[in-house]
């Protein structure tokens, strides 16, 4: 009881007080470690190329991070409810190719078509949700199946790289608003929307379902409803990633999705969101995605070969998970 709490606090004063401090300020220890990784890499990059300390330059860097951030956000949502979504790559290319072909060929009302495409992406996500929450499929298997279906559909829309995304989209991606690169605005937008969701009742439900479905149900949550929402929203995020990628690349690429699937999982894990569900958040994934982008930027800058970048990202992933697993084990032993 109370006495126990006091005892343990007295026995281990340093760490809990730090924890307490962080908890009171609403920041988790995980967030601090992920932010540290990001900052160290960013500072390294800035030292190597001081030219990067310029709004426009940073804007370009942010641009390359956009698709990964959004796919990472999609993956985070699904992982939070103890799932995994391999189809984010498929949804992404579906949105990407349709943007490049349908919207590009169409004159006039681009915005409406883009919204229709995003709606399609959300429906694709909803299909995953239905398979998982209503059909009872394992998330891995359900999204493995839908991944290739979406990939196939994307290939039907656009068999090889090409198409012409609308100039307005390209202009938007490369443009600035009030002196701020639009890529920044998108990143900020994702974060703000996430914070709003996190702070909403629905946000609490998402965490509850991820932590313990049975208890969430006991507390009156509709587990199926929450999952449908989460998968649909993940589809939407992946769709936005695809649309933006069309803008960044100025063309449609039907094969662009696959690398993002596993990289998004890596970003989620490096960020500190637990694959067991209920812990973490999109903010963490955004920081991790940033870290990965800085790694590849540093490698390019120093003129190292690409393999160094691959090795560094994988090494970071491995180091982070192993250290976290060791910390967990120590904590477990202490609490036992």
């Amino acid at each position: 009881m109370t006495s126990t709490t006091v005892d343990t606090a007295a026995a281990r004063p340093a760490v809990p007080s730090l924890r307490r401090l962080l908890a009171n300020s609403g920041i988790s220890l995980t967030a601090v470690t992920t932010a540290t990784i990001l900052i160290v890499l960013a500072v390294t990059d800035f030292i190597l190329q001081p030219a990067l300390l310029d709004v426009t330059e940073l804007g370009y860097l942010a641009q390359t991070a956009l698709p990964l951030v959004l796919v990472g956000a999609a993956q985070t949502l699904v992982v939070l409810v103890r799932g995994i979504d391999l189809s984010v790559g498929g949804i992404m290319v579906l949105a990407n190719t349709t943007t490049a072909v349908w919207v590009g060929e169409q004159g006039g009302n681009h915005q409406l078509l883009v919204f229709a495409i995003l709606g399609l992406a959300a429906c694709a996500g909803l299909l995953n949700g239905l398979l998982v929450a209503v059909g009872g499929f394992e998330p891995f298997v359900a999204t493995l199946g839908t991944w290739t279906i979406f990939n196939g559909l994307a290939l039907k829309v656009l068999p090889t790289d090409g198409g012409a995304p609308p100039p307005s989209l390209i202009n938007f991606v490369f443009g600035k608003t009030a002196g701020i690169p639009n890529s920044f605005l998108v990143l900020a937008g994702v974060f703000v929307v996430w914070r709003i969701l996190r702070a909403s009742k629905l946000g609490t439900r998402i965490y509850a379902v991820g932590a313990d479905e049975e208890r969430a149900r006991l507390n009156g949550t509709s587990v199926v409803g929450v999952k449908l929402f989460v998968y649909a929203l993940a589809g939407l995020c992946a769709g936005i990633a695809g649309v933006l990628l069309a803008g960044v690349a100025s063309s449609g690429t039907p094969t662009a999705g696959d690398p993002y699937i596993l990289t998004s999982v890596a970003a989620v894990v490096i960020g500190g969101t637990s694959l067991a569900g209920g812990k973490g958040g999109i903010g963490l994934t955004m920081m991790a995605a940033g870290a990965l982008v800085f790694i590849s930027d540093i490698v390019t800058e120093v003129n190292l070969e690409t393999w160094v970048s691959v090795a560094a990202s994988s090494g970071l992933l491995l180091a982070v998970v192993i250290v976290r697993s060791l910390i967990d084990r120590v904590a477990e032993r202490r609490s036992a």
């Binding site: 999982v265 890596a266 694959l275 990202s313 994988s314 992933l317 491995l318």
Partner: peptide
């Protein structure tokens, strides 16, 4: 998923 992904990445590198 994470372990084999990371090791795969290292092999790739």
């Amino acid at each position: 998923i994470v372990m084999t992904l990371a090791v795969g990445g290292l092999v790739q590198a």
